[in-house]
Amino acid sequence: MPHIAWIGKKSPFCGNVTYGLTITEALRQRGHRVSFIHFDSGDSWPDVALPYLVKSQVYTIPSPGAQRELRDALARLQPDLVHASLTLSPLDFRLPDLCQQLGLPLVATFHPPFDAGLRHVAAGTQQLTYQLYAPALARFDRVIVFSQLQAGILERLGVPAERLAVIANGVDVNRWCPARNAPAAGAAGRGPESRDQQLDQRLGRERLFVYMGRIATEKNLEALLRAWRLVRPRGCRLVIVGDGPLRSALEPASPEPDVLWWGHEPDEATRIALLQRAEVFILPSLVEGLSLALLEAMACGAACVATDAGADGEVLEGGAGIVLRTQGVTTQLRTLLPLLRDQPVLTAELGRRARQRVLERYALTGSLSQLEGLYSALLSRRPVPERSAPGPLWGLPLA
Protein backbone atom coordinates (compact mmCIF):
# COMPACT_ATOMS: atom_id res chain seq x y z
CA MET A 1 0.00 0.00 0.00
CA PRO A 2 1.36 3.47 -0.83
CA HIS A 3 2.24 5.98 1.86
CA ILE A 4 0.15 9.13 1.36
CA ALA A 5 1.16 12.54 2.70
CA TRP A 6 -2.15 14.36 3.10
CA ILE A 7 -2.01 18.16 3.28
CA GLY A 8 -5.25 19.68 4.52
CA LYS A 9 -7.20 21.14 7.44
CA LYS A 10 -8.47 19.83 10.76
CA SER A 11 -10.01 23.09 11.95
CA PRO A 12 -12.06 25.25 11.98
CA PHE A 13 -14.98 23.03 11.05
CA CYS A 14 -15.99 23.24 7.36
CA GLY A 15 -16.56 20.97 4.38
CA ASN A 16 -12.83 20.76 3.66
CA VAL A 17 -12.19 19.51 7.20
CA THR A 18 -14.95 16.90 6.94
CA TYR A 19 -13.63 15.74 3.56
CA GLY A 20 -10.06 15.37 4.78
CA LEU A 21 -10.91 13.56 8.00
CA THR A 22 -13.38 11.23 6.28
CA ILE A 23 -11.09 10.25 3.41
CA THR A 24 -7.94 9.79 5.49
CA GLU A 25 -9.77 7.67 8.07
CA ALA A 26 -11.21 5.49 5.31
CA LEU A 27 -7.82 5.14 3.59
CA ARG A 28 -6.27 3.97 6.85
CA GLN A 29 -9.06 1.44 7.30
CA ARG A 30 -8.16 0.06 3.87
CA GLY A 31 -4.55 -0.42 4.95
CA HIS A 32 -2.91 2.73 3.60
CA ARG A 33 -0.36 4.63 5.63
CA VAL A 34 -1.44 8.27 5.81
CA SER A 35 0.58 11.14 7.29
CA PHE A 36 -1.62 14.18 7.94
CA ILE A 37 0.03 17.59 7.49
CA HIS A 38 -2.08 20.57 8.50
CA PHE A 39 -1.96 24.08 9.86
CA ASP A 40 -1.92 24.01 13.64
CA SER A 41 -0.20 25.57 16.61
CA GLY A 42 2.10 23.59 18.87
CA ASP A 43 2.78 19.88 18.78
CA SER A 44 0.12 17.79 17.00
CA TRP A 45 1.92 14.42 16.97
CA PRO A 46 1.47 12.05 15.17
CA ASP A 47 0.38 14.69 12.65
CA VAL A 48 2.71 17.32 11.25
CA ALA A 49 1.80 20.88 12.23
CA LEU A 50 2.56 23.85 9.98
CA PRO A 51 2.64 27.34 11.53
CA TYR A 52 0.13 29.93 10.37
CA LEU A 53 -0.76 33.57 10.84
CA VAL A 54 -4.50 33.40 10.05
CA LYS A 55 -6.82 30.41 9.68
CA SER A 56 -10.53 30.56 8.90
CA GLN A 57 -13.23 28.35 7.40
CA VAL A 58 -12.44 29.83 3.98
CA TYR A 59 -8.71 30.58 3.73
CA THR A 60 -5.36 30.19 5.51
CA ILE A 61 -2.32 32.48 5.64
CA PRO A 62 0.80 30.47 6.56
CA SER A 63 3.67 31.76 8.63
CA PRO A 64 6.85 32.73 6.72
CA GLY A 65 8.57 29.48 7.70
CA ALA A 66 5.69 27.15 6.78
CA GLN A 67 7.10 26.19 3.37
CA ARG A 68 10.46 25.23 4.83
CA GLU A 69 8.77 23.11 7.47
CA LEU A 70 6.62 21.42 4.83
CA ARG A 71 9.66 20.64 2.72
CA ASP A 72 11.49 19.21 5.73
CA ALA A 73 8.46 17.13 6.71
CA LEU A 74 8.11 15.61 3.24
CA ALA A 75 11.83 14.86 3.11
CA ARG A 76 11.59 13.15 6.50
CA LEU A 77 8.39 11.22 5.83
CA GLN A 78 9.40 10.12 2.32
CA PRO A 79 5.84 9.42 1.14
CA ASP A 80 5.00 7.80 -2.18
CA LEU A 81 2.49 10.48 -3.10
CA VAL A 82 1.24 13.86 -1.87
CA HIS A 83 -2.48 14.65 -1.80
CA ALA A 84 -3.35 18.28 -1.02
CA SER A 85 -6.91 19.12 -0.07
CA LEU A 86 -6.37 22.74 -1.03
CA THR A 87 -6.90 25.20 1.79
CA LEU A 88 -7.00 28.44 -0.26
CA SER A 89 -3.54 29.36 0.96
CA PRO A 90 -0.49 30.94 -0.72
CA LEU A 91 1.27 27.66 0.00
CA ASP A 92 -1.03 25.91 -2.51
CA PHE A 93 0.79 27.65 -5.37
CA ARG A 94 4.22 26.43 -4.20
CA LEU A 95 3.30 22.76 -4.07
CA PRO A 96 3.96 21.86 -7.75
CA ASP A 97 7.57 23.12 -7.60
CA LEU A 98 8.18 21.55 -4.20
CA CYS A 99 6.86 18.11 -5.18
CA GLN A 100 8.54 18.18 -8.57
CA GLN A 101 11.94 18.73 -7.00
CA LEU A 102 11.30 16.01 -4.43
CA GLY A 103 10.13 13.64 -7.17
CA LEU A 104 6.69 13.13 -5.63
CA PRO A 105 3.43 12.76 -7.56
CA LEU A 106 1.03 15.53 -6.54
CA VAL A 107 -2.76 15.28 -6.36
CA ALA A 108 -5.07 18.15 -5.40
CA THR A 109 -8.71 18.27 -4.40
CA PHE A 110 -10.16 21.63 -5.41
CA HIS A 111 -13.07 22.60 -3.18
CA PRO A 112 -14.18 26.19 -3.94
CA PRO A 113 -17.92 26.50 -4.64
CA PHE A 114 -19.21 27.83 -7.92
CA ASP A 115 -22.29 28.75 -9.90
CA ALA A 116 -21.75 28.02 -13.56
CA GLY A 117 -24.41 30.58 -14.50
CA LEU A 118 -22.59 33.50 -12.82
CA ARG A 119 -25.97 34.76 -11.61
CA HIS A 120 -24.80 36.56 -8.48
CA VAL A 121 -21.98 38.66 -7.07
CA ALA A 122 -20.98 35.63 -4.98
CA ALA A 123 -20.67 33.59 -8.17
CA GLY A 124 -18.46 36.23 -9.76
CA THR A 125 -16.19 36.26 -6.72
CA GLN A 126 -15.80 32.49 -6.86
CA GLN A 127 -15.07 32.69 -10.60
CA LEU A 128 -12.12 34.93 -9.76
CA THR A 129 -10.85 32.22 -7.41
CA TYR A 130 -11.01 29.69 -10.25
CA GLN A 131 -9.18 32.07 -12.58
CA LEU A 132 -6.48 32.66 -9.99
CA TYR A 133 -5.92 28.96 -9.32
CA ALA A 134 -6.17 27.58 -12.86
CA PRO A 135 -2.52 28.17 -13.93
CA ALA A 136 -1.23 26.44 -10.79
CA LEU A 137 -3.73 23.57 -11.05
CA ALA A 138 -2.50 22.88 -14.58
CA ARG A 139 0.85 21.90 -13.02
CA PHE A 140 -0.54 19.31 -10.58
CA ASP A 141 -0.40 15.69 -11.71
CA ARG A 142 -4.13 15.30 -11.04
CA VAL A 143 -6.83 17.65 -9.80
CA ILE A 144 -9.90 16.07 -8.24
CA VAL A 145 -13.19 17.94 -8.69
CA PHE A 146 -16.67 16.87 -7.70
CA SER A 147 -18.66 17.23 -10.92
CA GLN A 148 -18.39 17.52 -14.70
CA LEU A 149 -19.66 21.10 -14.40
CA GLN A 150 -16.70 22.00 -12.20
CA ALA A 151 -14.30 20.22 -14.54
CA GLY A 152 -15.73 22.13 -17.49
CA ILE A 153 -15.05 25.48 -15.79
CA LEU A 154 -11.42 24.57 -15.17
CA GLU A 155 -10.97 23.25 -18.70
CA ARG A 156 -12.20 26.56 -20.10
CA LEU A 157 -9.64 28.30 -17.88
CA GLY A 158 -6.79 26.25 -19.32
CA VAL A 159 -6.43 23.20 -17.06
CA PRO A 160 -5.82 20.20 -19.38
CA ALA A 161 -8.67 17.71 -19.34
CA GLU A 162 -6.26 14.81 -18.81
CA ARG A 163 -5.18 16.32 -15.49
CA LEU A 164 -8.74 16.49 -14.15
CA ALA A 165 -10.48 13.63 -12.35
CA VAL A 166 -14.15 13.79 -11.40
CA ILE A 167 -14.61 11.94 -8.10
CA ALA A 168 -17.76 12.96 -6.25
CA ASN A 169 -17.91 13.38 -2.50
CA GLY A 170 -18.87 10.17 -0.78
CA VAL A 171 -20.80 9.36 2.40
CA ASP A 172 -20.45 6.38 4.72
CA VAL A 173 -23.98 5.06 4.21
CA ASN A 174 -23.74 2.73 7.20
CA ARG A 175 -23.00 5.64 9.54
CA TRP A 176 -25.20 8.30 7.90
CA CYS A 177 -28.46 6.41 7.64
CA PRO A 178 -32.12 6.65 8.69
CA ALA A 179 -32.76 5.97 12.37
CA ARG A 180 -34.43 2.68 11.51
CA ASN A 181 -31.17 1.49 9.89
CA ALA A 182 -28.87 2.78 12.64
CA PRO A 183 -26.75 0.41 14.78
CA ALA A 184 -28.36 -0.88 17.94
CA ALA A 185 -28.35 1.36 21.01
CA GLY A 186 -25.03 1.29 22.80
CA ALA A 187 -23.05 0.07 19.79
CA ALA A 188 -21.18 3.34 19.47
CA GLY A 189 -20.35 3.40 23.18
CA ARG A 190 -21.33 7.07 23.53
CA GLY A 191 -24.67 6.85 25.34
CA PRO A 192 -27.21 7.14 22.49
CA GLU A 193 -30.15 6.89 24.89
CA SER A 194 -28.90 9.88 26.85
CA ARG A 195 -28.29 11.77 23.60
CA ASP A 196 -31.83 11.05 22.44
CA GLN A 197 -33.23 12.36 25.71
CA GLN A 198 -31.22 15.57 25.40
CA LEU A 199 -32.38 16.01 21.80
CA ASP A 200 -36.01 15.45 22.83
CA GLN A 201 -35.71 18.17 25.45
CA ARG A 202 -34.11 20.68 23.10
CA LEU A 203 -36.02 19.98 19.89
CA GLY A 204 -39.52 19.43 21.22
CA ARG A 205 -42.22 17.58 19.30
CA GLU A 206 -42.55 19.71 16.19
CA ARG A 207 -41.72 18.43 12.72
CA LEU A 208 -38.18 19.52 11.94
CA PHE A 209 -36.89 21.48 8.96
CA VAL A 210 -33.08 21.67 9.16
CA TYR A 211 -30.31 23.80 7.70
CA MET A 212 -26.76 22.59 8.41
CA GLY A 213 -23.70 24.49 7.23
CA ARG A 214 -21.75 27.71 7.49
CA ILE A 215 -23.67 30.89 8.25
CA ALA A 216 -22.10 33.03 5.56
CA THR A 217 -23.18 35.19 2.63
CA GLU A 218 -22.83 32.52 -0.04
CA LYS A 219 -25.12 30.14 1.88
CA ASN A 220 -28.05 32.59 1.43
CA LEU A 221 -29.58 31.74 4.79
CA GLU A 222 -31.31 35.13 4.82
CA ALA A 223 -33.61 33.96 2.01
CA LEU A 224 -34.65 30.87 3.99
CA LEU A 225 -35.30 32.92 7.13
CA ARG A 226 -37.41 35.46 5.23
CA ALA A 227 -39.55 32.71 3.72
CA TRP A 228 -39.94 30.93 7.07
CA ARG A 229 -41.04 34.10 8.85
CA LEU A 230 -43.54 34.87 6.10
CA VAL A 231 -45.10 31.39 6.23
CA ARG A 232 -44.62 30.36 9.88
CA PRO A 233 -45.66 26.75 9.10
CA ARG A 234 -47.69 25.52 12.04
CA GLY A 235 -46.43 22.50 13.91
CA CYS A 236 -42.96 22.87 12.37
CA ARG A 237 -39.63 24.12 13.63
CA LEU A 238 -36.59 25.37 11.71
CA VAL A 239 -33.28 24.20 13.23
CA ILE A 240 -30.14 26.04 12.10
CA VAL A 241 -27.00 24.01 12.77
CA GLY A 242 -23.70 25.79 12.23
CA ASP A 243 -21.81 28.98 12.81
CA GLY A 244 -20.16 31.68 10.77
CA PRO A 245 -19.60 35.39 10.26
CA LEU A 246 -23.27 36.25 9.69
CA ARG A 247 -24.73 34.52 12.72
CA SER A 248 -24.62 37.59 14.96
CA ALA A 249 -26.41 39.63 12.28
CA LEU A 250 -29.09 37.03 11.49
CA GLU A 251 -29.92 35.61 14.90
CA PRO A 252 -32.52 37.83 16.61
CA ALA A 253 -31.98 39.14 20.12
CA SER A 254 -35.31 37.63 21.25
CA PRO A 255 -35.82 33.87 20.84
CA GLU A 256 -38.31 32.72 18.20
CA PRO A 257 -40.32 29.68 19.29
CA ASP A 258 -40.29 28.09 15.83
CA VAL A 259 -36.61 28.81 14.99
CA LEU A 260 -33.82 27.12 16.94
CA TRP A 261 -30.27 28.41 16.50
CA TRP A 262 -28.38 25.27 17.40
CA GLY A 263 -24.88 26.62 16.78
CA HIS A 264 -21.76 24.70 15.83
CA GLU A 265 -22.09 20.98 16.59
CA PRO A 266 -18.68 19.25 16.78
CA ASP A 267 -20.03 15.80 17.69
CA GLU A 268 -20.66 13.71 14.60
CA ALA A 269 -23.09 11.35 16.33
CA THR A 270 -25.24 14.33 17.33
CA ARG A 271 -25.18 15.71 13.78
CA ILE A 272 -26.30 12.32 12.50
CA ALA A 273 -29.10 12.22 15.07
CA LEU A 274 -30.24 15.70 14.05
CA LEU A 275 -30.44 14.71 10.38
CA GLN A 276 -32.21 11.47 11.25
CA ARG A 277 -34.91 13.55 12.96
CA ALA A 278 -35.14 16.07 10.12
CA GLU A 279 -38.20 15.71 7.93
CA VAL A 280 -36.88 18.30 5.46
CA PHE A 281 -33.33 19.57 4.83
CA ILE A 282 -32.98 22.93 3.08
CA LEU A 283 -29.82 24.33 1.45
CA PRO A 284 -30.47 27.74 -0.20
CA SER A 285 -26.88 28.43 -1.35
CA LEU A 286 -25.89 30.93 -4.03
CA VAL A 287 -22.70 28.98 -4.79
CA GLU A 288 -21.66 25.43 -3.89
CA GLY A 289 -19.24 22.69 -4.81
CA LEU A 290 -20.91 19.42 -3.93
CA SER A 291 -22.32 19.82 -0.44
CA LEU A 292 -21.36 17.07 1.99
CA ALA A 293 -24.11 18.24 4.33
CA LEU A 294 -26.63 17.68 1.55
CA LEU A 295 -25.33 14.17 0.88
CA GLU A 296 -25.38 13.36 4.59
CA ALA A 297 -28.98 14.57 4.91
CA MET A 298 -29.97 12.50 1.87
CA ALA A 299 -28.25 9.43 3.32
CA CYS A 300 -30.23 9.92 6.55
CA GLY A 301 -33.50 9.90 4.61
CA ALA A 302 -34.50 13.57 4.85
CA ALA A 303 -36.52 15.15 2.05
CA CYS A 304 -34.01 17.57 0.52
CA VAL A 305 -34.47 21.01 -1.04
CA ALA A 306 -31.42 22.74 -2.55
CA THR A 307 -30.58 25.29 -5.19
CA ASP A 308 -28.97 24.38 -8.49
CA ALA A 309 -25.70 26.04 -7.42
CA GLY A 310 -22.57 24.00 -8.05
CA ALA A 311 -23.31 20.30 -8.43
CA ASP A 312 -26.19 20.16 -5.94
CA GLY A 313 -28.78 20.36 -8.70
CA GLU A 314 -27.20 17.31 -10.37
CA VAL A 315 -27.40 15.40 -7.09
CA LEU A 316 -31.16 15.96 -6.74
CA GLU A 317 -32.20 15.88 -10.38
CA GLY A 318 -34.66 13.27 -11.61
CA GLY A 319 -36.84 13.21 -8.50
CA ALA A 320 -34.30 12.67 -5.70
CA GLY A 321 -35.25 16.05 -4.21
CA ILE A 322 -36.54 19.51 -5.02
CA VAL A 323 -34.25 21.85 -6.96
CA LEU A 324 -34.61 25.63 -6.64
CA ARG A 325 -33.13 28.36 -8.80
CA THR A 326 -30.56 30.50 -7.04
CA GLN A 327 -32.56 33.59 -7.99
CA GLY A 328 -35.76 34.27 -6.04
CA VAL A 329 -35.17 31.66 -3.35
CA THR A 330 -37.48 33.38 -0.84
CA THR A 331 -40.39 33.42 -3.30
CA GLN A 332 -39.89 29.76 -4.20
CA LEU A 333 -39.67 28.67 -0.55
CA ARG A 334 -42.71 30.74 0.39
CA THR A 335 -44.71 28.59 -2.03
CA LEU A 336 -42.97 25.35 -1.14
CA LEU A 337 -43.00 25.40 2.67
CA PRO A 338 -46.81 25.05 3.03
CA LEU A 339 -46.73 22.12 0.59
CA LEU A 340 -44.01 20.34 2.57
CA ARG A 341 -45.92 21.05 5.79
CA ASP A 342 -49.20 19.64 4.47
CA GLN A 343 -47.85 16.61 2.56
CA PRO A 344 -45.98 14.24 4.91
CA VAL A 345 -46.43 11.42 2.40
CA LEU A 346 -44.53 13.52 -0.16
CA THR A 347 -41.68 14.27 2.24
CA ALA A 348 -41.42 10.59 3.18
CA GLU A 349 -41.18 9.58 -0.48
CA LEU A 350 -38.59 12.27 -1.21
CA GLY A 351 -36.56 11.03 1.75
CA ARG A 352 -36.67 7.48 0.42
CA ARG A 353 -35.56 8.61 -3.03
CA ALA A 354 -32.77 10.74 -1.54
CA ARG A 355 -31.37 7.78 0.36
CA GLN A 356 -31.55 5.60 -2.76
CA ARG A 357 -29.70 8.22 -4.84
CA VAL A 358 -26.83 8.27 -2.36
CA LEU A 359 -26.64 4.47 -2.33
CA GLU A 360 -26.47 4.44 -6.12
CA ARG A 361 -24.03 7.30 -6.77
CA TYR A 362 -22.46 8.80 -3.65
CA ALA A 363 -21.44 5.96 -1.32
CA LEU A 364 -18.00 6.46 0.19
CA THR A 365 -16.82 3.01 -0.90
CA GLY A 366 -17.18 3.96 -4.56
CA SER A 367 -15.36 7.27 -4.14
CA LEU A 368 -12.50 5.54 -2.32
CA SER A 369 -12.11 2.92 -5.03
CA GLN A 370 -11.87 5.67 -7.65
CA LEU A 371 -9.29 7.49 -5.54
CA GLU A 372 -7.21 4.36 -5.09
CA GLY A 373 -7.33 3.79 -8.83
CA LEU A 374 -6.07 7.32 -9.42
CA TYR A 375 -3.19 6.78 -6.98
CA SER A 376 -2.24 3.49 -8.63
CA ALA A 377 -2.26 5.02 -12.11
CA LEU A 378 0.06 7.85 -11.04
CA LEU A 379 2.45 5.62 -9.12
CA SER A 380 2.70 3.07 -11.93
CA ARG A 381 4.00 5.73 -14.31
CA ARG A 382 6.56 7.25 -11.95
CA PRO A 383 10.02 5.86 -11.21
CA VAL A 384 10.58 4.96 -7.58
CA PRO A 385 12.44 7.93 -6.04
CA GLU A 386 15.73 7.40 -4.27
CA ARG A 387 15.22 7.43 -0.51
CA SER A 388 18.29 9.46 0.34
CA ALA A 389 17.97 12.81 2.06
CA PRO A 390 17.52 15.53 -0.56
CA GLY A 391 19.89 18.42 -0.90
CA PRO A 392 18.87 22.07 -1.09
CA LEU A 393 15.96 22.86 -3.37
CA TRP A 394 17.82 25.36 -5.51
CA GLY A 395 15.59 28.01 -7.02
CA LEU A 396 12.67 27.31 -4.69
CA PRO A 397 11.93 30.20 -2.29
CA LEU A 398 12.00 29.05 1.32
CA ALA A 399 9.90 31.84 2.82
Score class of each variant (00 low, 15 high):
W45P: 03
N181D: 15
A269W: 12
L374C: 07
L379S: 08
Q148W: 09
L359C: 12
L286K: 04
R68D: 07
G15S: 08
P178M: 06
G189E: 05
E372S: 01
M1I: 08
D40E: 14
L86T: 06
L21G: 04
S41W: 13
L398N: 12
L27V: 03
S194L: 14
A122W: 09
I272F: 03
A151M: 08
T125F: 12
R226E: 14
L74S: 01
R226K: 15
W261S: 03
L77E: 14
V143L: 02
P79Q: 02
A188N: 10
Y130M: 07
I37K: 12
G289D: 11
P192E: 15
G170Q: 02
W6G: 01
Q67N: 10
L27K: 01
Q201N: 12
L286D: 06
K9W: 03
I282N: 01
S248R: 12
Q100L: 09
F110N: 00
W228D: 01
K55I: 13
G301M: 10
A122N: 11
L81R: 00
W176R: 07
L27D: 00
Y130P: 08
K10H: 14
V166G: 03
A26Y: 02
R382P: 00
A49F: 10
L118K: 13
W176V: 01
G191T: 08
P12G: 06
R180W: 12
L157D: 06
G186D: 10
T129I: 15
W262P: 00
L118T: 07
G15C: 04
P255D: 05
S41Y: 13
C14H: 08
L77Y: 09
